[in-house]
């Protein structure tokens, strides 16, 4: 049974006003436990609207969402349950911090779940470790933290609910390369330890290529392409038409092939391209 599943979802923004516009037009999607899914598409393609359907923040005008096999609209309790099982981290989540201390802020979700005090404490400390926050930082005001630490604190606030599906909307936006890499590693750590599914909404083809098992490409409120990264990146022309670029490594590989270098298909990460070229050019690794 999929951890979260969407059946033929449609959604209209500002229904009944002059600003009415369809955001989703019949999207079906399923995600198993432990999977790592990348959702790509340019702004306005419906991808951010879609992830807000998965934990019931938005109500579809048609179709339904199942979490652990249960329709999240079947009862109020089911909807509440879905909020906690499908954790959603918004873009620039640091803007949602509000408590006096980082510790208190991270505990907001578990407190809303109605957990006993000792379990809340356990979860807060565990989430802090996953998010790479130190003990000292837990006692600080969230507003004293640096930009990158604030982001981590906000993500910890969702991780503390121990969601089976962790959805992050552009978690690395505005971070520098070092901050980006360590944050993605932290998310991997949570997935490995909890066996949780991770769904990342991203603009970065490099990030999508490097981490995800499966990519879902949104376009005009529909799923335009879906498959493993190598399946999706094979459709270079279609992606370009959607305003999406291939990962830099795939671009370079394409240019090399055009120049007659006999590279295999499906090279879309820097490491894979480098290894293929080392083979072709007769290099070898010292180590």
């Amino acid at each position: 049974m999929p951890a979260v599943q969407a059946e033929n979802i449609s959604y209209v923004y500002s229904a009944g006003t002059p600003f009415e516009r369809p955001a989703l037009r019949g999207v079906s999607f399923a995600c198993e436990k432990g999977e790592y899914v990348g959702i790509i598409g340019h702004t306005g393609s419906g991808k951010s609207t879609f992830v807000q359907q998965l934990n019931g923040l938005l109500t579809p005008s048609e179709g339904r969402v199942l979490v652990g096999g249960v329709d999240i609209r079947s009862s109020k309790a089911a909807l509440r349950e879905a909020r906690f099982r499908v954790g959603l981290v918004f873009q620039f989540p640091e803007y949602q911090l509000f408590e006096e201390t980082v510790y208190r802020d991270i505990s907001f979700g578990p407190r809303n779940m109605g957990l006993p005090a000792d379990e809340i404490d356990e979860r807060v400390r565990e989430a802090a470790v996953f998010a790479g926050l130190s003990e000292a930082e837990l006692g600080k005001s969230p507003f004293e933290l640096s930009g990158g630490q604030k982001r981590r604190a906000a993500i910890a606030g969702v991780i503390a609910m121990r969601p089976e599906v962790l959805i992050l909307d552009e978690p690395t936006a505005g971070l520098d390369p070092a901050g980006r890499d360590s944050l993605l590693a932290n998310i991997d750590g949570y997935r490995d330890r909890q066996g949780a599914a991770v769904i990342i909404v991203t603009h970065s083809m490099e990030e999508a290529a490097r981490r995800a098992d499966r990519l879902v490409v949104f376009m005009d409120g529909l799923v335009a392409l879906e498959g493993t990264p190598s399946e999706v990146f094979r459709h270079a022309a279609a992606l370009r038409e959607m305003g999406l670029a291939l990962p830099a490594a795939a671009q370079i590989a394409g240019k090399l092939k055009a120049r007659g270098v006999p590279l295999p298909d499906g090279l879309y990460t820097s490491a894979a391209l480098r290894d293929a070229l080392v083979g072709l050019l007769g290099g070898s690794y010292a180590s």
Partner: peptide, 13 residues
């Protein structure tokens, strides 16, 4: 990305 790739190739000789 370009320089990283070339650098990786040079490391491999």
């Amino acid at each position: 990305e370009t320089v990283s790739l070339l650098y990786g190739l040079r490391l491999a000789g």
